[in-house]
Write a protein that binds this DNA or RNA. Structure first.
Lengths: 140, 140
DNA sequence: TTGCGTGCAAAGGTTTTGCATGGCA
DNA sequence: TGCCATGCAAAACCTTTGCACGCAA
């Protein structure tokens, strides 16, 4: 009853979703999105309105950058079960790693049992540094 | 050499840190902070400037709210090793759970070894729902 | 005394909103 | 046709900044 909204398939919606879908492992700020779509027929307020809606509908995820200041968005690839596993994000290169592994299932169970807490991988981004960037940091 | 900054101990700094320290397991927006300190002798821009500085210095953590829109801040309790363990946050009541447990160490090792990624607990907040809030959700 | 910290008000940048128009179903 | 979506520009909002003064060291 409550999800009975009519979603119109407009060209602007396709432009935005198309762009995000084309970069499933990348996070973008509104600025980057409007900039990337500046050649397309889509207005700024429409971008904002669509982003808002897509977040509510769980099609894209709203996160934050490393310093926590920028709001970033990433497409949630449901065919790849991206709403079921955790994502690691490297603070060096921004790379997203999909953490689709058994130990995480174990962790979920453990935390539910021992700590009384159900994890929500979909809305969580785990920060860290990937091996390559760690090497780079050492060299400096 | 690079951390050789003179930090003056002003009353405003004490007011802000005092407030945050008094609520170590809570996250606040700038609005909530300025509001809570409205009776104190501290100006709005000073709050912003102090928050910025405390974030850089790693004394407080900048995170995001459940919907991802609000920027939130939380005191990092170093005497409690809050920069070494993960934190769970309930999207219902906002409660923070300190995940100081062996399995997490195991997880860190596993992810470093198998996935080539070093986790950064300090800057990460893991979302989910606590047992009480899950009960409440069911009842509705 | 030095120079960082503070407060005010203005500036700056981002996001939201009102309204008329356009376009999907 | 009915209603949601769009675009523009204005408004609202939050955060940063310039400058003069205050205050810790």
């Amino acid at each position: 009853m409550k999800n009975e909204k009519n979603i119109y398939k407009t060209s602007q919606r396709e432009i935005l979703l198309g762009f995000l879908r084309a970069h499933p492992d990348e996070e973008f700020s509104t600025e980057e999105i409007t900039c990337a779509l500046s050649g397309e027929a889509i207005g700024k307020s429409t971008v904002y309105r669509l982003i808002s809606k897509l977040c509510e509908d769980g099609e894209i995820l709203r996160t934050r950058g490393e310093n926590g200041k920028k709001i970033l968005y990433r497409y949630i690839d449901k065919t790849n079960e991206c709403d079921e596993h955790f994502h690691l994000k490297c603070r060096g290169c921004g790379k997203i790693i999909h953490l689709d592994c058994e130990l995480m299932d174990e962790l979920k169970t453990h935390i539910a049992g021992e700590h009384g807490f159900r994890l929500d991988p979909k809305s969580t981004v785990i920060n860290g540094v990937c091996a390559e960037c760690e090497e780079k940091e050492k060299e400096e």
